[in-house]
Amino acid sequence: MAEVRLVDIEKKYGSFLAVPQQSLTIEDGEFLVLLGPSGCGKTTTMRMIAGLEDITAGDIQIAGERVNDKPPKDRDIAMVFQNYGLYPHMTVRQNIEYPLKLRKVNKAERARRVQDTADKVELGTLLDRRPSELSGGQRQRVALARAIVRTPKIFLMDEPLSNLDAKLRVTMRAELKHLHHELGVTTVYVTHDQMEAMTLADRVAVMREGRIVQLDTPKRIYSDPADLFVAGFIGSPSMNLIDGAVQDGRFIAEGMDLPVSLPDRDEVVFGIRPEDLELADGDTPIKGRLYALELTGESTLVTMRAGKTSVCARGHADFEAPINAPCHLAPKTGARFYLFDRATGQRLDG
């Protein structure tokens, strides 16, 4: 186990700045998720930690040791790839055994560790199969087994679940969480799936255009987003973001009129999560016509429209109403809402 420190690291491809200068410390035993949309630099950051990409500037330290010039094999890391990265010409056993073989672990010890690891990820009976004879989930387990068999200091996982179907992804997510709890190894996990980030991480680093825009616990990222980008990226369904203006202490937009504590200004974005809204009767601050109803099982997503304004609320599963019927929404008691500057995305409400 070890702490990972990125000190003022930067990555350029020619004149293109992929990751601008930034620092990040991943605590010993922590599960840190790098989250962001495609092309935000999260995989590049991970590959720099792995040593698969050179860094243009800065330092990378693993367990207090500068590893900038060390090749990947000498950094004591293990990586799980998006497409598994299994050796197709080797059996499951040979795949898991490979890193041990390269490190000249004796045969008996190799056999024992391979069997132990395979049992841990429930692959014990599949050791003599080739990757092509396995399902996606089983292949992912082989990749995990190959990573954990030599007990590295750091685990790096690059979107390891993105090739699995939705159901399997949920199962594997729980298994990853359990595995991390059991092994306690410092883990850096890259994903664009905010649900994965929220469920797995001790801390999430939300990235945009190569920069970490917020580094915090999942709970705080959800309840206290740093800016408009994070607010819109985290949450499913995502936060309602409504364009409007503040006049005389009220946020005004088509179909909306809410009291806010902010001086008058234009170009304001009002944010509120669907679960913080409720359907109400009479003179509510949010009014429009029912646009769509989506039953998710435990609740119904109610989308209301008023001109350009579109607002989604999480309603009771039994809620039913005709499309285009008048729709009234109100923030629940104690609901949180957020105000952002349209141009800069900065939080205005503190």
Binding site: L52, K73, G85
Partner: peptide
């Protein structure tokens, strides 16, 4: 040939 197999091998110590 998937690039990832090569990178995995580099990390594994080949």
């Amino acid at each position: 040939v998937p690039r990832e197999t090569e990178e995995a091998a580099r990390i594994d110590g080949a």
